[in-house]
Nucleic acid binder design. Sequence first.
DNA 1: GTATGTGAACCACTTCACAGCA
DNA 2: TGCTGTGAAGTGGTTCACATAC
Lengths: 209, 209
Amino acid sequence: MAALVPEVVVMRLPVYTRALVQLTAEGQEVISSQELGQLLRVTPAQIRKDLSYFGRFGRQGRGYNIRRLTVELQHILGIDRSWAMALVGVGHLGEAILNYRGFAPQGFNITAAFDTDPKRTGKKIGGITVQRLEEVRETIAARKIDIGIVAVPAAETQKVIDLLVAAGIKAILNYAPFAAQVPAGVKRRDIDPVLALQSMTFYLKESPK
Amino acid sequence: MAALVPEVVVMRLPVYTRALVQLTAEGQEVISSQELGQLLRVTPAQIRKDLSYFGRFGRQGRGYNIRRLTVELQHILGIDRSWAMALVGVGHLGEAILNYRGFAPQGFNITAAFDTDPKRTGKKIGGITVQRLEEVRETIAARKIDIGIVAVPAAETQKVIDLLVAAGIKAILNYAPFAAQVPAGVKRRDIDPVLALQSMTFYLKESPK
DNA sequence: GTATGTGAACCACTTCACAGCA
DNA sequence: TGCTGTGAAGTGGTTCACATAC
């Protein structure tokens, strides 16, 4: 089934899930696709269609039970468990990622960090001891690490990603400003604030300076 | 013209531009859509079509002069100039953003920072003195700030974005994990590593643990 | 009455394929 | 000959509209 779900749909599910969690926190129990759509600026039809790829979660005439739908979506996404991640590159950016408080509450834990610079290896940052890059392979296997985070300079990105892929990593969160290539079967998502800015200025440039 | 260019196209232009800059650094002078496509894993037809929205930059039988195309794209995107940005929220994340070295080389400069916490206002971080949030409006006007960066907790995001919009900001880079709403005419791009992770685990969950 | 779930219609983006030009 | 630029064809995702169920 999973193979025929459009990737855009998969990318919207976490957005829905986050909103539902928030609604539960506010005490709401039921929601219609209409209401959720207004909240997220998405058409109700799109929400219903998206959900229909995975099952039938609503009650006609009523809407969706928020708690039930949340649990279903978390299971579909695989976020009803925790995931171990390895960070490669502990410069300014990597250090900030290690100290970032937003991952753990969502079940994403950085359990290993690597760098090539001897000035950094051995240091302990955010509770994690920075290891030498050569140890990536065995550490990933030993600690059952599922996801790689890359925060190295652009020039080293491809090499590092190849290393992670060779170590069996199937998902990479890439902070480097470089469109690295991954083989089929490996997912890559880029976090690239500069690209985001550069595509917004297109719309700004005509407005009064 | 700009209005009828699909947004997906606009979002690919910075990727092309970055690759072209890199190619120039490597000494290459001409490239075909075929070759650029291979490099970026994009079809040559897509590159040619994307460029055709803006003009005719190639030479038939030859390809594209890299330097010329780079200049054209930078102009189209509005990245042939510098832009002033204001940061709101100087917690852990905001501080990392202030210290991030990747913006300035691309012409994006954070020239003001704001927070509500009196423990933070007045402090100087990365060369910027943190101001009180109430000063947003006049500072943005006085310093001709074009872009807002939001790094506040989810619960405050909408309020802060409304404030920036009221101050005349037309582009917002949002790091908060919240799908805030902006009026038509204002662009928003979200930097959300958790959403990125949550949409990748969907593909991981079936593979051996 | 109300809101879901879904085939069908629609729309937008991508790819094709070739005319046109260096 | 080689590669661009572009209408036309193809593809995939979104929206419609209604049968269905509560």
